[in-house]
Nucleic acid binder design. Structure first.
Lengths: 171, 171
DNA sequence: AGGAATTGGTTACAGTCGTAACGGTCTATT
DNA sequence: AATAGACCGTTACGACTGTAACCAATTCCT
């Protein structure tokens, strides 16, 4: 039949094939990210019925001032289509204004409207408050370690190793 | 019209309303998690055409040996429906066997088949290799900091604060 | 005993996502 | 000048997801 993990509800008799998903880095990272960003997402979803792509696009535009869709994608690591849809949603709410480039009529410059800028400022305030809460919960030490660890990941994963699956501006 | 972020492509003239998405913790965590788990997901997707929920369920079953769908959800933090679909997919490939509980006929006990266990062992090997790669890229220091930081997040977010949006076993 | 409430698990539905294909525009090569 | 290639942005399509509703079995309470 199967093998030796039949009556034991834990993993310690098998010796070699014990694997704890809860200790697996990708899993832990995902879970932490979900928990941390879900809380915030719930806030802006409740307040503005905004999706995460929309918030990212808004944030990019708010801080950079005027960009193309491609630039938003690069800045906030979102796929083309996600950006396209988010931009359309923001435009539908009149938070965003498109302007065709005169020299190159493929690109359109995106800019927040006055109302969009108001929302952005409010969102930034929410983000700051949330981050303060987060820092309070993490403690100064935890925060420092987390930031260092994230830095290491970002550094390790960026444009390095022999990428086999292609990089790009996906998800 | 709008405001004062019209001709500056960066953020330093506004003084107060500069906000860098790239420094925002939820965003950074998400990005790191995506990068780290995407690489691995690409591997098992290519090798076994497995989705992430399927891998999580397989991992839970492989290490715990015999559980109910609800237990899998709790162990791997997945929503009911995700577990249900993943279990069905695994069953369709004959990697998984269901058995109705005699005493309580609502619950079904799930167990890997011999073939499922083989796949699991292979996947665990892949996971270990990948984690070693990861550790090599992070460096011993980065790894330690990341784990400490993740620990802080896990500790801070678990069953604590006055949850306003309900917790649960979602995504 | 018997109805209400709870639990395990599935599924219809609407929303979201990425792939791939597309239309329109620009650039390079010939 | 004309054709091939690259690029910006959109969209049809299939795959995946969570919400809510559901069925069936069990437990709780009176």
């Amino acid at each position: 039949m199967s093998r030796n993990f039949t009556d034991e509800t834990s993993k310690f008799g098998a010796g070699k094939e014990d694997f704890d998903l809860g200790a697996f880095l990708p899993y832990r990272l995902n879970r932490a990210a979900e928990m941390v960003s879900q809380r915030f997402a719930a806030q802006y979803k409740a307040r503005y019925d905004m999706t995460r792509p929309e918030w990212r696009a808004l944030a990019a535009l708010g801080s950079c001032g005027r960009m193309t869709a491609t630039e938003i994608g690069a800045n906030s690591t979102m796929h083309k289509t996600k950006v396209s849809r988010a931009v359309k949603a923001l435009e539908d709410r009149r938070w965003l204004k498109r302007t065709l480039d005169e020299d190159d009529r493929r690109v359109e410059h995106l800019e927040l409207t006055a109302q969009g800028a108001r929302i952005y400022r409010d969102m930034v305030e929410m983000a700051r408050v949330y981050e303060r809460e987060l820092v309070a919960m993490l403690g100064a030490g935890g925060l420092k370690q987390l930031e260092a660890g994230l830095g290491a990941v970002e550094c390790a994963m960026s444009p390095s190793r022999s990428e086999r699956g292609r990089g790009g501006t996906s998800n």
